[in-house]
Amino acid sequence: MTTNLIHWLLYGGAMGLIVIGIVGVVTLTNIFRIILALVIAEAGANLLLVIAGYRFDAIAPILTGQALSAMPTTQIMVDPVPQAMVLTSIVIGVGVQALALALVLKVYKNYQTLDLREIHHRMLADIDHSSGVISLLSEEQPKGERPLPEPETKNVLNSGGEK
């Protein structure tokens, strides 16, 4: 029972990290912090992975001392596979984070803000501009002059009379 509880706490901690990370990504607006939140979530996933190979009273899967000569070892070892996987996934995480940071730098350079809302706004405006579409968002912020519809110059009576 205690083993189960400890296990559960461990797993629960990993899951908790994941959820915290996700909540961070969703609720934060500063893009640098969003990256940090992502890092937390990744840490949670990695933790989960490494716990999957955890055994009570087991040693690290490295042969030392007499174990070297007495193969296969009699001592209980933890699962080496998740450890290898975690190694891989940490490095992967580093790569992604570095790229995300580079993007943050460039986004900041271009938009002079770290606020995701503002960035999103400006990005949509940019896309609309480059595709020549009048932005939906521009309705909310009119830019001074707005072209009025052309006045009806035709005499309605004349044209109506013919029809």
């Binding site: 996700i22 990504v25 969703v26 995701l116 809302r117 706004h121 949509l124």
Partner: peptide, 11 residues
């Protein structure tokens, strides 16, 4: 698709 935080939908 215009909502500013797509991660919410993932959640």
């Amino acid at each position: 698709f215009h909502s500013f935080h797509p991660a919410l939908f993932l959640l």
